[in-house]
Design a protein around this nucleic acid. Structure first.
Lengths: 140, 140
DNA sequence: TATGGTTGCTTGCGTACTCAATAATAGCGC
DNA sequence: GCGCTATTATTGAGTACGCAAGCAACCATA
């Protein structure tokens, strides 16, 4: 179960060395890049990355200072501040995405065959949700 | 893939609320409890928990202050300092183990059936090691 | 339109780590 | 013996978070 920590650390180190981004940085850019108008509410971003709102504030601080993300107010609700991907951020994302995805591919492709990856993804996806399967009472 | 973070955080919170231990604390006690003479070298403990040596120093600082672990020098090699589980530590481990393992069981049993757990464990165990499977070149 | 609860975001403070530097010991070749 | 390098542990500095508290804006109810 701890195995993933080592793999994650490795990917993080590569991403950081190649592009100066942490995995969290990268995922913010990625989600913004996929979002409509390249913008998302900070709270939604936090939810997707499984961070707290305060964690997201500080994560975005760094990306704003780097010029990859801008803040924009939301006309409909003056509480919310959008995080908007800048052109520089989009370019950075494109740079980082190819090498990062290639590294992820290497990591998993080196260890699993395709149908195993499918199985693993299906199993892991259920750890996040709240739908229990059925729990057999200890039969023996 | 991030799903595990949420589950881990939940377990950590329960363990911390019930017994005042972090998961790392608990795992140290557990490994020491399973070790011969209830003692291990700090560097080996660090390797098993996937922490650095410095992380282990500070983790054990806390457990020493709490009285669960003692330091003992190694007669054969004066560089190494053993971490030794005290009687208080063993008692704490027994306390925490039952409730913690029950919570882990709940978490997984609620989501997976038995053969799925086996599959998941088998797949995840391969993320840590260094033995590649075979990587098919992109056929299509 | 007051009021009270909820949501979005930020800030202060604490924690659990990492990495780099340091020191002491071990063990090697000579 | 004497240097060399590797290993073990600790320390200092920095980082990436979480939690609790706070503020402002929103919303519902009266």
């Amino acid at each position: 179960m701890r195995a993933h920590a080592s793999a994650t650390r490795h990917l993080n180190a590569q991403l950081s060395a190649d592009h100066g981004l942490t995995i969290s940085d990268f995922e913010v850019l990625l989600r913004l890049g996929q979002a409509a108008d390249r913008r998302l509410r900070r709270v939604d971003l936090a939810g997707e990355l499984l961070l707290t709102a305060s964690g997201m504030t500080r994560l975005l601080d760094g990306l704003e200072q780097a010029g990859y993300v801008e803040r924009a107010s939301c006309p409909g609700d003056r509480r919310v501040v959008h995080a908007v991907l800048t052109d520089a951020g989009l370019e950075k994302l494109r740079d980082a995405a190819t090498t990062h995805f290639a590294q992820v591919d290497d990591l998993f492709c080196a260890r699993y065959e395709e149908h195993e990856l499918d199985d693993l993804a299906a199993l892991l996806s259920r750890l996040g949700g709240n739908e229990p399967a059925n729990c057999e009472p200890p039969a023996s």
